[in-house]
Simulated scan of single mutants.
Amino acid sequence: MPRRYFVALLGSLGGSFALFYLVLFGLGATGHLPPPSLANSICVDEKLAHLRAQPPEAPNLLVIGSSIAWRHFDGDVVRRENPQVRPLNGAFCGLTANQSTFAGSWLLQHYPSVREVVMIASPHDFENCGRMRTEVFDPRDAEDFVYRGSSPWPYYIKYFAPGALLRNALTIGAKRAGGEVMDPLIFDRYASGPMETHGVRDTLLYGPVRHFDQACFDALDRFAREMRREGRRVLLASTPMHPAWKRLNDPDNAMQDAFGQRVRQVLAPLGGEFWDGDGARVVDEAAFYDGIHLRWSAVAPYSAALARHFQFGAAPPAAAAALAGAPRL
C-alpha cells in the first residue's frame, strides 16, 4: 500500500508539472506567455525580459526611476540635442525612490561604460520608501535570467503564481501590441516605454503627496555617494504635473518647492544636480493622460528641455575624473 501510494503521488506530481509546462508552451506559441514573475509585477518582469532579449551596447547614460522615467524619456530627441549620448532607460514601473536606486546600482554592475545617471521622478516616488522592500527582485536570479542566459522555464516554478499568470496571459498580447491600450508594454530601442494613447483616464488617479519619507532621501544620498566614488555624474529631474492636479493638491507650489529643496540638499554637496522639470513649464494640460503621466507626443519637448539643461555628455569625462579624485565621503 505505501509503495502504490508513493508511485501514485509521484505520478500525480509529474503529471501536474507536465500539464503546467504544456500550458506554458501553448501560451508561448500563441504570444500570450508572460515573462517569469521575478518581481511579481508584469511591467517590471517584462522590462527584465526585454533587457535579456535586446541587450544594449555600451550605454554612457543611464535613466532610472519609476514609470515616470520609463515613459518620459525620448532617446532620439535627447540624442539630437546631445549627439554623443548613448542612453539606456533602466527605469521600472511602480518603484519608490529606494527601489529605483537599487535597480540603478544593479544595472550599473553590468554597464561600466555609463558615466552619467539621471533619475526622472515624481514627488510621489519619495513618499513611502520605509514601508517598501528595497530589493524589488532577487538580484542573483535577475542576473542569471537577464545576463547569463539561464533558461526561463525553472523560474515559472520557483515563482509559481497561477492566478497572476492567468490574469497576465489574458492581457499580455494586447499590451505588447500597444496602440490605444492604456498601459502598453512596448519598448523602443532605448528600453523606454512610449505611451501613444489618445485617451485619458477617468480620474487624475494620483492623490496628494501627504508627506515625504526621509528613507527616500537617505536612499538617494547613498546612491549619490556611490556615484561619486565611481566617478559618475548623478542628476535628478522632476516631472511635469497635471495643472488640474496642482490646482487641487498643490495650489501654492509649496510641496514642489519643498521637494526641490530637499533633493538639492542631498545632491549639491556630492556634486549632483537637480532640474525642476515641472517649473520649466515645457508642456500644457493637453499633454497629460492622468495626474502625472505624459502622452508620448509631449515627451519630446520635455526630453529636449531635459537634454538642454543637463547637457548630457558634456561634463564627463572631465567632471567624472574630478569627482573620482575628490575626497571620499
Results as ranks from 00 to 15, higher is better:
Gln109Met: 12
Val299Lys: 06
Leu95His: 09
Ala142Lys: 09
Arg52Ser: 09
Asp218Phe: 01
Leu267Ala: 03
Ala304Trp: 09
Ser303Asn: 09
Ala258Glu: 05
Leu170Trp: 07
Ala280Pro: 07
Gln84Ala: 00
Glu46Gly: 05
Ile172Arg: 11
Leu27Tyr: 04
His211Met: 10
Leu306Arg: 12
Phe102Met: 03
Phe187Trp: 12
Phe20Tyr: 12
Val209Ala: 01
Trp70His: 12
Leu9Asn: 03
Phe259Pro: 06
Thr30His: 13
Asp144Gly: 15
Ile64Asp: 03
Leu22Tyr: 15
Val7Gln: 10
Ser238Asn: 04
Glu46Thr: 11
Tyr5Pro: 03
Ile157Ala: 15
Phe310Arg: 02
Pro139Cys: 15
Gln261Met: 08
Asp221Val: 02
Leu294Arg: 11
Ala324Arg: 07
Lys246Phe: 00
Ala224Gly: 04
Ser12Asp: 07
Gln261Val: 09
Glu285Val: 00
Glu285Pro: 06
Met132Ile: 07
Val118Arg: 04
Asn253Leu: 01
Gly28Phe: 10
Leu165Val: 12
Asp284Tyr: 02
Gly277Val: 06
Ala287Ile: 15
Gly291Glu: 01
Asn40Arg: 13
Gly179Met: 05
Leu51Arg: 05
Arg233Gly: 00
Asp141Arg: 06
Ala191Arg: 07
Gly291Arg: 01
Thr96Gln: 15
Phe187Tyr: 13
Leu329Lys: 07
Gly207Asp: 03
Arg86Phe: 10
Arg295Ser: 05
His309Val: 10
Asp257Ser: 01
His110Tyr: 14
Gly149Asn: 10
Ser113Gln: 14
Val63Asn: 08
Ala321Glu: 11
Leu205His: 02
Pro162Val: 10
Gly75Tyr: 03
His211Cys: 10
Ala326Pro: 07
Asp138His: 13
Arg131Tyr: 02
Leu205Arg: 01
His32Val: 01
Asp188Gly: 11
Thr203Cys: 04
Ser67Lys: 01
Phe126Ile: 11
Gln256Thr: 00
Gly199Leu: 14
Ala318Gln: 15
Gly272Lys: 05
Ala268Asn: 15
Asp218Ile: 08
Pro35Phe: 00
Val78Ala: 10
Gly149Leu: 10
Ser100Lys: 08
Arg233Gln: 06
Ala280Gln: 07
Ala324Leu: 12
Ser100Thr: 02
Asp252Arg: 03
Ala237Gln: 11
Arg79Asp: 00
Tyr111Gly: 07
Pro301Gln: 06
Glu180Lys: 08
Ser151Ala: 14
Ala53Val: 04
Ile68Cys: 09
His124Asp: 09
Gly179Cys: 02
Glu143Arg: 11
